[in-house]
Design a protein around this nucleic acid. Structure first.
Lengths: 352, 352
DNA sequence: TTGTAAGCGTTATCAC
DNA sequence: GTGATAACGCTTACAA
């Protein structure tokens, strides 16, 4: 096993000092051309690469971004990571992933594990449990220690950091308006409990669209799904709830669902109830992923441009990291940006 | 901004030496109880955490695993990562992700970026381009430098490392046999070009099943798909090829597809051709993900247990890393394991 | 019981 | 031109 080659080793081998080697490799003209060439040739031959860890320690910069997400087996999040990786790599950064699995304590643990020098900054989306507890001390402490955070999608307004979100409210409003314009008169929504802020916003968009279009609001057409129903592919409870809603309110002719799974489940139940899509029932989902594209019928949905979200989050973070190199603490009070990525309604077969 | 607290800082504050602080925090009884308590109280109060980078440099261990995968927006790979993360976290390791995007040069670049001290070992699945070029020097060099690799799914036999694979051949053989037992007489396969080893193995399993069951082999029932056809949700070329095969061979009553997308596309085309599934045509896919579970009709498929693959890969790597601490170089010639994760046929609606 | 010093691999400052 | 030295934050013989 070839030992990993270091400056020290090269120095010994060539009978020069470590600093001479270091300078030669940086092509410093303090060093004679002869020595430089000798050193460079040797280094190239043995494929010398400076040790990242030593550099990190010296520079107090790891060139690594920590990403904490609630779930990775999920089209939206993995696409966001794809976007983050794309920009990070391009700008010379690595990406380290931590999964919270929607758990508060895993989120805290993961952040502590990474915050001790392993990374330069965080990109994250808040876990459901954290949102429900509303305990954000770990974010504030991280920021207080001078480590910047960029939040995306599931963000918390009170935290001082950059944020990348989609126009959840407007996106769902447009979706519901599309249903209205396609002739739906009794539109239901399948959404999350309100502590998930994006769910709450999408519900708000639904209500707003109905109000503005003078459609009656009916509480029995608003289904707020218990989170556990989604766990472990166990969709039966969800199916029952949807079936119950569809049967007790046979006038429903349009459903807006705040994510893909809810939307597909609606279609599944509708099929069981012999409702034709889109003739009898039109369906729109939120978050345009493989499931929407491959559903039967294909699902009209609100695209969040997940990749773009990741790219912008990475850009915001890296910009801030590299800004810090120049500007100093005086900037403490600087502004944080909240960037809104526009959603887009992708029309497919599940609507008229 | 609170500066990050270090041993040095505590030492100065408490008027003791750095080593006293270090020892106190480790509860060494070299140090008087009084001093220990004082230091520990102070450290706890200011929430001292040792700097990972410094530890890494000192210990020549980063407690970080590098994972290089061809694609992240993909149920199989993200589920593998989930498994890796699960074990890694449990054993105190972080996970750093690099995406090759199926490109040889990105794979090499990513590995070089991480191999210089950032990680202790790799878990990876080979990119298609690398498989096609058959240029594996970067793997061999990494291993020669003493950095262990564990390969999964898309592996290369000639590389000296641990591997985790599924029984691709047996899995597809069983799938095809299931079709035979369900009454299919003319079974087609939609597979990849042969350089993708898992694709080739699955093709082999198909052929074997037919031979053993005395079914005629017919080249026009073997569709080897050009890779580029999958790019960018643009499946039209794939659809055309499948449609052509189904039309020119109307006797086909069963199709085995080596991944989810191929399988769904088969079902889509079949629907277009007014073939009922499973009455007229039975379909089985490989790789059981959300798409199979949510397809209409739901898709019978061969589950690879992606999470388990990730978990075993992580265990093999970490075991080797921690073994190295004790055993020394004499073990150079030690054996590498190839672990086979059994596949499982999940029967759903697309077969009888 | 406490402190000094070397070392992990680099870079930068300052002497020679 | 070249090299010694200190520093990044930590651990650990070894000295005091």
């Amino acid at each position: 096993m070839k030992k990993k080659i270091t400056l020290k080793l090269i120095a010994k081998e060539l009978n020069v000092s470590i600093s001479t080697v270091s300078k030669s490799l940086k092509n410093s003209k303090e060093i004679s051309e002869e020595t430089r060439e000798k050193v460079q040739a040797f280094a190239k031959f043995y494929n010398y690469k400076p040790n990242n860890i030593a550099l990190s320690l010296k520079n107090k910069k790891t060139k690594t971004i920590g990403v904490i997400i609630p779930e990775i087996v999920h089209y939206f999040f993995s696409k966001v990571i794809f976007g983050i990786e794309h920009i990070a790599n391009q700008r010379g950064y690595n990406v380290i992933i931590g999964l919270s699995n929607e758990s508060f304590s895993k989120e805290v643990l993961n952040m502590e594990m990474l915050a001790n020098g392993s990374i330069d900054g965080f990109i994250l989306s808040i876990s459901k449990e954290t949102l429900e507890k509303r305990d954000f001390h770990h974010f504030n402490e991280t920021i207080a220690q001078g480590m910047p955070i960029v939040m995306f999608d599931r963000v918390e307004d009170s935290i001082k950091c950059d944020k990348v979100i989609v126009d959840d409210l407007l996106g769902s409003k447009k979706a519901v308006e599309k249903l209205i314009n396609s002739g739906c008169n009794h539109i239901a929504i399948v959404t999350t409990k309100d502590f998930v802020n994006v769910g709450a916003l999408r519900t708000k968009g639904y209500i707003l669209a109905l109000e503005e279009n003078k459609k009656a609001l009916n509480d029995s057409l608003i289904l707020k799904v218990e989170d556990s129903e989604l766990i472990d592919d166990n969709l039966t409870q969800l199916e029952q709830d949807i079936e119950h809603m569809l049967i007790s309110n046979p006038e429903i002719d349009g459903v807006f669902a705040v994510n893909e799974i809810y939307a597909l489940t609606v279609m599944k139940v509708a099929r069981k109830l012999k409702k034709r899509i889109p003739e009898d029932l039109q369906v729109i989902g939120f978050s345009d992923g493989v499931l929407s594209q491959n559903a039967v019928p294909t699902l009209t949905s609100v695209s969040q441009h997940a990749q773009k979200i990741g790219e912008r989050a990475a850009e915001l973070l890296i910009n801030r990291l590299e800004l810090e190199d120049y500007e100093e603490e005086e900037m403490e009070l600087e502004r944080y940006e909240t960037e809104v990525i526009e959603t887009e309604l992708i029309e497919r077969e599940s609507t008229k």
